[in-house]
Every structure is written in C-alpha cells, then in structure tokens.
C-alpha cells in the first residue's frame, strides 16, 4: 500500500488517472442516474458507438478526436430524438441504425487514414493511465456544469423525467430541458471514453445506478450512491489495472459487476431475514 502511495506522488500519470476516476465518477453518477431512471441505457449505448464515427473522421483530417466524437455524439442523440418523435421510425430501430452507422463511418475513415492509428485501441477499450491534463480540465468543466444544473433545477429535472406528459400540461418547457440533458449526456459519454473505452462505456453509466437502486428509492439517493459506487469501482479497478497490467476499463467493469452482485446478495439476505422475523412475530402473536 505504501509503495502505491509513493508511486502516485512520484508519477504525474498516476495522479492524472486518479483525478480522472474522481471526475468521471461524478459525471457518470449524475448522468447515469438520469439515463437509468428514464430507461435510456440503450440510447446511451447507441450514442457512445455512433461517436466512433466522429473519432474516425477526426483522425483522417488530423483534428482532436475528442472534438469529433463530441460533435457526432450530440448530433446522433438529437437525430435519434427527432426520428423517434416523428414516429415514422421506432426509437430502438433508430438507435440500432445510428449505432452501426457511426461505427461503420469510424472504421472506414480509420482505414483510409495513412499509417497506423496508435491510439485507436485506447478509444475502443479505454486507457485511464494516458489521461492528459486537457482531458481533466474538460471533465472538470462538465462536472461543474452538471452539479450546478442538478443543484438549481433538481425538482424540474426530476418531475420532467418522471412524467414528461404531465409536465407539458403545466406549460413547462419539457423539450428544451430534455434536449439540454441529452446534450450533457452526450458530453459525459464522450469525455468518459478515455477511461473505459467505447465498448465498455455503457456499463459505467448503468451498473452503479442499478447497484444504487438496492439501497435507495429516491432520485437524489440514486445519484449520491452511484457516485460513491463509481468512486470505489474506478479506484479499485485502476489499482488492479496498474498492478497486474491489464486494461483499466475491463478491470473497472469487473469490479462494478462484483459490487453489483454483492449488493444484490446483501439486499436479498436482509429481505429474507425481515420476512423471517415478521413470520416469527406472527407465530408468537
């Protein structure tokens, strides 16, 4: 343990990785709770994969891949929303189309780019140890925006997410709020790609809220528990990945799933115990 602390103090890249896990946990906790509550896990998966198209194009033209991914993620999110609203295409079909189309565009442009794309694996599978200071600054900015919005507008966000049709009858600008949150979701997804990678990202946003749901039944509780669970999962995963030299994204996801299983076990056991004591009381009475 002591040597790890020493190494963290010594190596900049380890400090960056630690900060990245803290900042990503906050973003994923907030956005993931929103995604899970609104049952948009599949949608977020579609956005994640579609953003690969932006990465490919950015590679080809020599622009910052994160910017390319961000543009693609936001456009595909709005595209899915618009297609689904017009009801000519089913939402899950629209997601499926954009999911594959984005990946296809990405693969074609990466293939067309002369030479070898060395960081490509990092985008697909994540590499928390290569996080740069500019990545961290962007994540910090996102966290500040998310915390401010969810602090100031917690009730409207909760109520609109719960029953948008009712909110509409109260003359609340439902669509505006939903589009802003969708854009933030796309931003959170893209900025987290560096940590776990496109392929595993969906779990960063869905496993912690699902685990949190065993302990809390409120939206606020879900956000706070999700952040805590993400923090533990990313820390432990990061350490494991550094020590054993395995990809950080995969290590983090395995820790998440183990925590989910433990939480399920705990909630199942407490429920059994409660039922048994209640039965005993009934027998005694």
């Amino acid at each position: 343990m002591f040597t790890i602390l020493q190494e963290i103090l010594e190596y900049q890249f380890l400090q960056n990785a630690l900060w990245a896990s803290v900042l990503v946990s906050v973003a994923a906790g907030i956005v993931g709770s929103y995604i899970t509550s609104r049952r948009m896990v599949f949608l977020s998966g579609g956005i994640t994969h579609a953003s690969f198209g932006g990465i490919g194009i950015a590679y080809y033209f020599g622009i910052n891949p994160v910017m390319g991914a961000l543009v693609f993620a936001i456009l595909s999110a709005f595209g899915i929303e618009a297609l689904a609203n017009r009801k000519t295409v089913r939402e899950d079909s629209a997601i499926g189309i954009l999911w594959a189309f984005g990946m296809a565009i990405g693969i074609i442009f990466v293939f067309l780019t002369p030479g070898y794309a060395p960081n490509l694996m990092n985008f697909l599978f994540g590499s928390i140890l290569t996080v740069t200071q500019s990545d961290l600054l962007m994540l910090l900015a996102l966290d500040v925006i998310l915390i401010a919005l969810f602090w100031l507008f917690f009730n409207p966000i909760l109520f609109i997410s719960f029953d948008p049709e009712f909110a509409q009858t109260q003359k609340v600008p439902v669509k505006v709020v939903q589009y802003i949150l969708t854009a933030l979701m796309a931003a959170a997804i893209v900025l987290s790609i560096r940590v776990v990678g496109i392929i595993l990202l969906i779990s960063l946003f869905s496993i912690p809220p699902a685990t949190a749901n065993f302990f809390t039944k409120t939206f606020k509780g879900m956000i706070l528990w999700s952040i805590a669970i993400s923090l533990i999962g990313t820390f432990v995963g990061l350490l494991a990945s550094y020590r054993v030299n395995i990809p950080s994204g995969a290590a983090i996801i395995v820790v998440f799933v183990v925590m989910f299983a433990l939480a399920k076990l705990v909630s199942y056991t407490t429920m059994r115990v409660r039922i048994r004591t209640e039965n005993n009381k009934l027998h005694q009475a």
């Binding site: 909110a167 039944k217 409120t218």
Partner: peptide
C-alpha cells in the same frame, strides 16, 4: 402509462403538480 420503477416518492409525485415555468428554481 407510468413507469412504476422510477425512483420517486409519493410526496414528490404530489409536489410535482406544482411545477410551472414560474416555479423552476429551488426546493
């Protein structure tokens, strides 16, 4: 038409009836 798994309490559902463009801030 309501998602019964949504993490929200009865009291919050009732209070959500007060949501309006004028009451957008705060608790």
């Amino acid at each position: 038409n309501i998602d019964k798994k949504f993490p929200i309490t009865v009291q919050d559902v009732v209070l959500s009836g007060l949501l309006s463009p004028k009451r957008f801030f705060g608790s």
